[in-house]
Nucleic acid binder design. Structure first.
Lengths: 345, 345
DNA sequence: ACAAAAAATGTGCTCGAACACACAAAATTT
DNA sequence: AAATTTTGTGTGTTCGAGCACATTTTTTGT
């Protein structure tokens, strides 16, 4: 039943040559109606699936995929992505695919644009983007589209019909998850939502999380809580956050929308002995240290490694195995505390 | 630099024929010292990796992998495994591998033994076992070993040097995770550890979880808690658990070590209006319903789907790509509440 | 009716590894 | 020294899809 039919088998069954079968399968034309019908009859009965191994052995076309990633040297948040990409490289090394990573400075639009130029000059078949700079990305995507270069994105979403596939998380839901955990630790009091970021490039990201977080409290009508938003930059964390702590002596919980929870935890452990519930994002080393010390209660895992892996493998599998692009891949929102953290590295 | 060398390339470089290179690569002997040295010289300089696609295209050997699984009709816990196995089948359908699933009745040792006989009569290349019945499994594994059939296990561990690889979770740690969550919901009171199982086949499983759970409370010296263990069977849940509730009016938390949390939640929602913290295992439908109703606080996800998938793919990749067996694959202990549950299906 | 063009069909080579087999060159035996 | 075995080496085929090219059949034009 599940015997694997080959083109030769089909040819034999239909009483034609494999060349004709091949032409039908790829509708290359030059086939008489009679032959077409005979072959289609056979194809309707059996269940032909081309042998992908043979196909990829034959194909001489080398696919080029470029990944555009913020340099992890600037922000360790991106470090796991490198491993995810490496996983994909290892998995597909047998095939004729070249996967290349290019870094840009996440603080510099210019750097982003420059690296994109480099990529364009290499004319790859597809690009996986981290669209940190919204406006510039839209422009760049248009360029790629005109050149027939496929574009996928991960981590950040950018609305463009040219983007085939997006890998990321539901940020609104992730805010809700944080809220539900906060609601478990505390049953009343003031909660601060803190955004820490240098530029505004993560604005959408952070806002969505905040919306989700607030949405949970609104929906559950938890009126014993009061929520405050605070925006910080690296340069002013110490002063501004310390001042905030003094102004808000009743603060009992903090939700940090970026991977910088360790910065808050650090200031907090010096400033006060009071126990404040802390929930943040990402399993970067400094965060996990505070998690293990009990200074951070929960971290939400954004699984950048898998995001990057899936971003690449979606593209590669499209080329190699003609797989359809899923519109969106949403990764689970992993809840991490000190007890299960070690399993997620 | 990362040019892919073929056997032909090596032959040319060493000034011999591809046949000789092939004999060296597979040490089939019949090679003169002179030729051997020339080829080894080339191999030392370049970085030869055989093209797995070509190798698998040529090979006519069809690998047979059998999976031995408790029938999901008896316990929906096993349902996701079917999907995991299906994923593996889809992924490897291009290769010459046959993956077959055989079910047994988890309540019947006889059924287990009978299915094993069927499998042995098919003489597969490898078997993935769910070793529910410890004593019988050890015996069976010995048989497989003598027949040269590889054995991997998942879900349950069984100490045997013949088992190449095990996929599962660290149950002790998973008990600790449950404890840490319980400690977050409650800050004092009586906690019941409830084991629900028909036979004793899951005894080790449940005990390890209990040990981990207790270990957490011991280690953190949380003396405001008192822990009680209760063993139930399906037939006596209603009566015995109701009685337990009456005898223990101060009960504030329950940890259920199997996937049967819904049975406790069900009785609980009828017997009392008091809020009792409930933590259980597995995203089976009934559990998730109670999770969404707020009657179960957390579920720990044992990810049987991925367990089964990895169990199969480890075997297949060993045959197809000569991959080494990892001794143990421990899956992360996913913490699930009503907010993030939907992402794990 | 016959040549030329067009359409349809078949043949044969390629990809890289694996292995059977043929053949040659040494190493033994008689 | 000739016959035979052993050892070494190269050649050729296979796997299945894909595609170029050769060949056959049909159609069209004069």
């Amino acid at each position: 039943m599940d015997k694997k039919y080959t083109i030769k088998d089909i040819a034999q069954m239909a009483g034609v040559s494999k060349g004709t079968v091949d032409r039908v399968l790829h509708n290359r034309g030059k086939v008489s109606p009679a032959a077409l019908e005979k072959i289609n009859e056979v194809l309707n009965v059996i269940d032909y699936e081309p042998n992908l191994i043979a196909r990829n052995l034959k194909s001489t076309k080398i696919y080029r995929v470029c990944v555009l990633l913020p340099d992890p040297a600037f922000d360790p948040y991106w470090l796991p992505c490198v491993n995810g990409i490496q996983d994909a490289i290892t998995e597909f090394k047998a095939y004729s695919v070249i996967i290349e990573t290019h870094y840009f400075n996440p603080e510099s639009t210019k750097s982003f644009l420059k690296v994109n130029e480099t990529i364009i000059s290499q004319s790859p078949d597809a690009v996986l983007l981290t669209p940190l700079f919204h406006k510039e990305t839209v422009e760049i995507i248009k360029q790629y589209d005109e050149l027939g270069i496929m574009v996928n994105t991960f981590n950040n979403q950018v609305e463009s019909s040219s983007v085939k596939s997006f890998v990321g998380q539901d940020l609104h839901k992730s805010g809700r998850v944080a809220a539900s955990l906060m609601n478990l630790i505390l049953n009343k009091g003031q909660i601060a939502i803190i955004h820490i970021d240098e530029s505004l490039k993560n604005a959408v990201h952070m806002q969505e999380k905040e919306k989700g977080f607030r949405n949970y409290f609104d929906e559950k009508e938890l009126s014993d809580f009061s929520l405050t938003t605070l925006k910080l930059k690296y340069s002013n964390i110490e002063t501004k956050f310390t001042a905030f702590l003094e102004e808000n002596p009743d603060l009992s919980g903090i939700f940090i929308t970026t991977s910088k929870a360790y910065q808050i935890a650090s200031v907090l452990s010096l400033a006060t002995t009071k126990k404040i519930a802390l929930i943040g994002y990402d399993l970067i080393e400094k965060n996990v240290n505070f998690l293990n010390q009990g200074k951070v209660h929960f971290l939400i895992h954004q699984n950048q490694k898998r995001q990057a892996y899936l971003g690449v493998s979606t593209l590669v599998e499209h080329f190699l195995f003609r797989k359809e692009f899923p519109d969106t891949i949403l990764l689970p929102i992993d809840i991490i505390n000190s007890e299960n953290a070690s399993f997620y590295f």
